[in-house]
Amino acid sequence: MSSFIEFRDVHKTYGTGAVQYQALKGVNLSVQQGEFVSLMGPSGSGKSTAMNILGCLDVLSRGEYYFQGVPVSALDRHQRALLRRHHIGFVFQGFNLLARTSAHENIELPLIYRGLSKRERRWKVDQALDVVGLLPWAAHTPESLSGGQQQRVAIARALVTSPAILLADEPTGNLDSERSVDIMQLLSTLNQEQHLTIMMVTHEPDMAQYSQRIVHFSDGRVADDMGVSGG
């Protein structure tokens, strides 16, 4: 059986000519359906770069990427957009919420593009808001929400479409430890009960403990790939 996600010798080079920078230097990685994987490693080691390529937000420079057996490196822009729309939920390191737009509307956005009816949208958004504990803040815009609350809006937006895989770039980076634990328990529950495949970047070993597998990045390569002891 082919992997849910597979990177084969993936390279990513930023820039051109004299200012080229190799962010990924041959990454091999495969993830099975239902896994909960943490990506760790020093700053600048290429974790976000890998996540962006996984989320079809960026394209690789060399190598191959298979998503459920589909060769993503061979898809055009439109096909990658459809892949994002139907299968991927992405949580950004910097939230990327729409400014001056309420939490409700931010979370509703992906559903509008998916063509859901107003009633369905309302129901799903409320459900997602409830899951991240933000129902009372539905009408607030990002400007009037704390960093942690914005992070939870971003997570709710990624989850509201029931994606096949959740890609989260430092989802607890802006939260205090209590809130972080809440979020990790939420992800853990989704992984165990709904078999949601999750890939998460984190700097905190405590958070990585919630996943089943930790992939260590170092200088654009996978340095270490191991299961979580006692996880």
């Binding site: 989320g55 957009a81 919420l97 400014a99």
Partner: peptide, 18 residues
Amino acid sequence: ERTREIGTRLAVGALERE
């Protein structure tokens, strides 16, 4: 600002033509 907004929309599943 609008470019970032467009990036966000694309990231959450908008198609180019939408």
